[in-house]
């Protein structure tokens, strides 16, 4: 516990220092609040009775969308990887398509999805899914393939069938890889949600920031942004925590160092 604190305080101190410098600069140069509000002004603005409840509401909408899209995207990515891995020849057939799907800029998908799926939550969640599934599929495919050949040979030799090798060797081997894909997906998911909300619909932090921006409410733009950053970091921490709980068998040193799975 003490150890964690020792590792946690330097970045916190840097953040506090930056905030202090920011505050000082705004006061010293008397910068207009609609150009750059000071940290204390941002907090004061966010705490206003007509602002805070709305921030809360939009945050909830963003969190819900992100989690739904991320969960569905990770699920789809995992299943897709398993299918590609298990169907003979599918890996070779799917690889170029997977890369191709990544060359489509997501931003052009937004109007298309809006046309196809309307202005509700569906197009946003589909977009988040699309963004999340690729890193998961790629990482998972790597993990399923790159098993220790000695273990594979041993299991085959004692008579394990295809399914047993998948369930007992390939799948557990892929789990740490899956998590490195999951961490990337978690980071993408928040930005994608915010971008999707900016483009359409009437709720979420992306929508709220756009609205505040049009009304020159710079303090609220900053308040929303800070919440988005905090949420992103929370998602990252959550992914790391789940990984720690699930992958308990790894040597401590290897776990902390992570490993080079992924694209």
């Amino acid at each position: 516990m003490g150890n964690k604190w020792m590792r946690g305080w330097p970045p916190l101190a840097v953040i506090a220092l930056c905030a202090a410098a920011w505050e000082a600069a705004v006061r010293l140069f008397a910068i207009e609040p609609y150009i750059l509000p000071s940290p204390s002004a941002i907090v004061r603005e966010a705490m206003q009775p007509n602002v805070w409840p709305r921030l809360e509401m939009h945050t909830l909408a963003t969190v819900w969308r992100t989690l739904t899209g991320l969960a569905l995207g990770v699920l789809a990515g995992t299943l897709l990887a398993a299918v590609i891995h298990l169907v003979p020849g599918a890996r070779r057939a799917a690889a170029p398509l997977l890369v191709l799907s990544q060359t489509v800029p997501y931003i052009v998908l937004v109007p298309l999805l809006l046309i196809w799926l309307g202005f509700g939550d569906e197009p946003k969640i589909v977009l988040i899914m699309l963004v999340c599934f690729f890193p998961v599929t790629v990482a998972m495919l790597t993990g399923l393939r790159e098993c220790d050949p000695a273990l594979r040979g041993y299991l085959a030799m004692i008579g394990a069938d295809r399914w047993t090798i998948f369930a007992k060797l390939e799948l557990p081997n892929a789990v740490p890889y899956l998590f490195s894909g999951f961490r990337i997906a978690a980071a993408y998911s928040v930005t994608t949600t915010v971008a999707a909300e900016w483009f359409g619909g009437g709720s979420g932090l992306g929508y709220y920031i756009k609205l505040s921006y049009s009304g020159f409410q710079t303090g609220r733009v900053f308040a929303g942004t800070i919440i988005i950053i905090a949420f992103s970091m929370l998602m990252f921490g959550l992914a790391a925590l789940i990984e720690r709980l699930v992958v308990r068998w790894k040597p401590e040193a290897e776990r902390r160092g992570g490993h080079g799975a992924g694209a």
Binding site: M157, L169, V175, W249, K250
Partner: peptide
């Protein structure tokens, strides 16, 4: 019944 040259234990079991 086979014992390979490397121990070949699954690390997650």
């Amino acid at each position: 019944a086979y014992m390979p040259q490397q121990a070949s234990l699954l690390p997650w079991r």
